[in-house]
Simulated assay, not measured.
Amino acid sequence: MSTTNIRRIDQPTEREIAGLCDVLIDCVEGGASVSFMAPMTREKADAFWRKVAASAARGERALLVAEDESTRILGTVQLIWDLPENQPHRGDLGKMLVHRDARGRGLGAALLQAAEDCARAEGKTLLVLDTVTGSAGYRLYERGGWTRVGEIPNYALMPDGAPCPTTYFYKEIG
């Protein structure tokens, strides 16, 4: 993998919002089931990332980005801290996205490790996530030592409208 910098951003700049939009649009256009249906418009992506940015600025989540030497955003992951008061020890990992141009070079594993490190630094001891069963993300989480909890059939839709199963995973990191 070429030189990549992974960092947390609490108040994304306009350039960073645009880069995050590029990654999200690419992932949806590539068929990833990440809460959005095709066609994925720039307006829809921009609105999503602005909500995420506001939440990160309030400390409700951590937004991590992976950039190349030119500071082009290649991937991102979020950790959601805004959970019920009886769950201060955990976070939800979400929106692990890697641009198709950057896949197969270990970027997903690096983002996952950075997310786990970030959660530990925030005092979290447990992370939870869900992903499409059998997807590249599913395989990444298995390789990363996450524990499979179970599968729910027809849980969500792929961007083209086809139903897909979802698997829940957890990882104790404390």
Rank of each mutant, 00 (worst) to 15 (best):
residue 140 L to G: 04
residue 51 K to E: 12
residue 74 L to R: 13
residue 53 A to M: 03
residue 21 C to N: 13
residue 148 R to Q: 12
residue 60 E to P: 00
residue 83 L to D: 09
residue 135 S to K: 06
residue 104 G to I: 06
residue 22 D to T: 12
residue 101 D to L: 08
residue 50 R to M: 04
residue 24 L to R: 07
residue 37 M to L: 15
residue 131 T to D: 04
residue 102 A to N: 09
residue 75 G to E: 09
residue 56 A to I: 04
residue 7 R to Y: 00
residue 118 C to V: 00
residue 76 T to C: 14
residue 141 Y to I: 10
residue 154 N to G: 03
residue 4 T to A: 12
residue 155 Y to V: 02
residue 161 G to L: 08
residue 58 R to A: 15
residue 110 A to H: 01
residue 13 T to Y: 01
residue 138 Y to L: 11
residue 28 V to A: 05
residue 72 R to L: 09
residue 158 M to L: 15
residue 164 C to R: 15
residue 79 L to M: 03
residue 98 V to N: 04
residue 161 G to M: 06
residue 1 M to V: 11
residue 44 K to W: 00
residue 30 G to K: 08
residue 10 D to V: 05
residue 115 A to E: 07
residue 109 A to N: 02
residue 3 T to K: 15
residue 49 W to P: 05
residue 165 P to R: 14
residue 103 R to D: 07
residue 30 G to N: 13
residue 71 T to A: 15
residue 61 R to S: 12
residue 89 H to Y: 14
residue 111 L to P: 05
residue 117 D to N: 09
residue 21 C to W: 00
residue 103 R to T: 13
residue 116 E to W: 01
residue 145 G to M: 12
residue 48 F to G: 05
residue 134 G to W: 05
residue 93 L to C: 03
residue 164 C to I: 10
residue 147 T to N: 10
residue 140 L to A: 10
residue 69 E to H: 12
residue 93 L to E: 04
residue 155 Y to E: 09
residue 174 G to H: 07
residue 172 E to Q: 09
residue 161 G to D: 11
residue 46 D to K: 02
residue 68 D to I: 06
residue 50 R to A: 06
residue 108 G to K: 03
residue 68 D to N: 15
residue 16 E to R: 10
residue 26 D to P: 13
residue 33 S to Q: 05
residue 162 A to I: 02
residue 45 A to I: 09
residue 62 A to E: 12
residue 118 C to A: 03
residue 16 E to W: 06
residue 64 L to Q: 08
residue 59 G to F: 11
residue 31 G to M: 05
residue 160 D to A: 02
residue 168 Y to D: 06
residue 10 D to I: 05
residue 15 R to K: 10
residue 151 E to V: 14
residue 164 C to V: 15
residue 16 E to N: 05
residue 37 M to A: 14
residue 62 A to R: 04
residue 10 D to G: 13
residue 38 A to R: 12
residue 52 V to L: 01
residue 6 I to C: 03
residue 28 V to L: 07
residue 168 Y to L: 09
residue 78 Q to E: 13
residue 4 T to F: 03
residue 125 T to L: 08
residue 97 L to H: 02
residue 108 G to T: 06
residue 25 I to S: 03
residue 63 L to H: 05
residue 36 F to T: 14
residue 50 R to Q: 14
residue 160 D to M: 07
residue 87 Q to C: 11
residue 127 L to Q: 04
residue 83 L to P: 06
residue 150 G to M: 06
residue 133 T to G: 05
residue 3 T to W: 02
residue 59 G to W: 13
residue 92 D to W: 01
residue 157 L to E: 05
residue 50 R to F: 06
residue 57 A to L: 07
residue 116 E to I: 12
residue 163 P to A: 13
residue 98 V to H: 02
residue 167 T to E: 03
residue 56 A to K: 07
residue 158 M to I: 01
residue 149 V to Q: 11
residue 20 L to W: 00
residue 22 D to P: 00
residue 11 Q to I: 04
residue 160 D to P: 15
residue 152 I to T: 15
